[in-house]
Simulated assay, not measured.
Amino acid sequence: MKTILIADDDKNIRELIKYPLIETGYDVIEAVNGEQALALAEQQLPDLVVIDIMMPLKDGYEVARTIRAERDIPLIMLTAKGELANKAEGFLAGIDDYMTKPFATAELLFRIKALFRRYDLSHETTVEVGNLVIDRRTYAVTHQQTDIFLPLKEFELLYELASHPGWVYTREDLISRIWGAAYEGNDRTVDVHIKRLREHLGENTAVAIVTMRGLGYKLEVIV
Rank of each mutant, 00 (worst) to 15 (best):
K195W: 03
R65K: 15
V190L: 06
R137W: 05
R177H: 11
P20L: 08
K113R: 07
A106V: 15
L21P: 06
I148H: 06
V192D: 02
I13Q: 12
G216S: 08
I53Q: 01
I73G: 01
T126Y: 05
V192R: 13
P151S: 03
K58N: 05
Q44D: 13
L121R: 15
Y119I: 02
Y139A: 05
E42V: 02
Y139H: 09
L197A: 02
T211P: 03
L78G: 05
V210N: 00
I178K: 01
S176T: 11
N86E: 12
K18I: 01
Y183K: 07
I73M: 08
A104K: 15
Y26V: 01
V207Y: 06
G202S: 12
Q145G: 04
Y169Q: 09
I13P: 02
P20V: 10
E172L: 11
T205S: 05
E89Y: 12
R188T: 13
V141Q: 03
L215P: 02
I51M: 10
K218Y: 10
H193P: 03
T211L: 07
Y61S: 06
D173Q: 06
N86R: 02
E89K: 15
A206L: 12
P46A: 03
G180A: 12
I178A: 07
L40I: 14
Q44A: 07
M212I: 15
L16C: 13
Y217D: 11
Q43H: 04
Y139C: 01
N33D: 15
G90E: 09
M99F: 13
T211I: 01
E124G: 05
P165A: 09
E35V: 13
E172S: 10
T3M: 08
T146R: 12
I53Y: 08
R177C: 03
A181N: 07
L45Q: 14
L92K: 12
G90W: 08
G202H: 05
T24W: 02
K87G: 06
I194T: 04
E184Y: 10
F103M: 11
E203Q: 14
Y26D: 00
K11G: 05
L92T: 11
W179T: 01
K87S: 11
A80R: 01
F155K: 09
E199C: 00
E154Y: 02
D27N: 14
Y98R: 04
D120H: 09
L219N: 00
Q36L: 14
K87N: 08
E154A: 02
N131F: 05
A41L: 02
L48H: 00
E89T: 12
E203T: 15
L48S: 03
N33P: 01
P151E: 11
S176M: 11
H193R: 06
P102Q: 15
L40A: 07
M99Y: 12
Y139I: 00
K113N: 14
Y217K: 05
D27I: 13
L158P: 02
A80C: 07
R137N: 15
V63E: 09
L38E: 03
V141I: 10
D27K: 13
V207C: 07
T126R: 15
